[in-house]
Design a protein around this nucleic acid. Structure first.
Lengths: 149, 149
DNA sequence: GAATATTATATCGTGCGCGATATAATATTT
DNA sequence: AAATATTATATCGCGCACGATATAATATTC
């Protein structure tokens, strides 16, 4: 398929639109937790691994500190986490969940399966979704390694 | 694959991250045109069909007027388009390209193939991209029709 | 045809995303 | 060990996205 200036032909727009629509679909569930979508992503990272430097979250979410720092400051103000300078290297800031932040994981436990149900349809099976995740992760890897150079 | 609270397992994050990384990759090309990515999308719509109401662009890009109106105002200030009330229905605002806006299409003509080249790799073929576009469009259709209800 | 509902667009406030820049701490070089 | 470079995080400014609300024009109902 020769790429053209038509909206539907390009990969960029479907990915961009799907991202926004999926996030919209998450919103009612996340409202119950009092989290925005990016805040939810930060919590997902910390629920997997706690007491990590800011750089770890930056790397996982493929965002920069100019986005992550304000996000963490808001989550700190909400009482979900703490930010404290590392003793070994005072440049690093270690992010740790509070009890409240850890507790929230239980409340979030049902979200993934509820969301998966929202995305399935006659045209999109669970296998399709798995394949999509797979190919998108390869695409991300390609785009990300070029960045490093 | 049973959905879990792990970042990598869910569809949401890969789509979100891929969207941002693809847009980042567009940026140097769009800088030459003096356009942001959302502004580029508006121009893509108008290059396909000119003299359309705001609602047409809203529908094509799956955005709302609270995003589109300021976007159009900036593009108008840049001299790319004009906004004029419809004579038949004064609620509608008709968006039309200026000569400058039409002219920009020529300069943008090389972007799609340049971008496609950026996204291809050992792991991602042109056929993969085609399939991705296809499945994402189905996903968008599913998410969008539920909205309408 | 006056009252009400609907439609189309605009405005406002908040939280991202990100390029550019700043700052402070550690590493490296000389 | 003083000068320089690098690393880790933070700040600033601007343009999206979007929920909530406003406003004006047309349609519909009574």
């Amino acid at each position: 398929m020769e790429p053209t200036l038509k909206l539907a032909d390009q990969i960029c727009f479907p990915v961009y639109a799907a991202s926004r629509l999926i996030i919209r679909k998450y919103t009612p569930y996340l409202d119950e937790l009092g989290l925005s979508y990016p805040q939810y992503l930060v919590m997902l990272v910390l629920w997997e691994e706690d007491q990590v430097p800011v750089s770890f979250i930056v790397q996982k979410l493929l965002l920069n500190t100019n986005t992550i720092t304000p996000l963490l400051q808001r989550l700190e103000a909400m009482g979900m986490l703490t930010r404290k300078k590392s003793q070994h290297d005072e440049r690093k800031v270690i992010v740790s969940l509070t009890a409240k932040g850890r507790k929230l994981k239980e409340q979030a436990a049902t979200i993934p399966s509820e969301m998966a149900a929202c995305l399935l349809s006659k045209e999109i099976t669970a296998a399709d979704l798995g394949m999509l995740v797979n190919k998108l992760n390869q695409l991300i890897a390609t785009l990300n390694e070029e960045d490093a150079s």
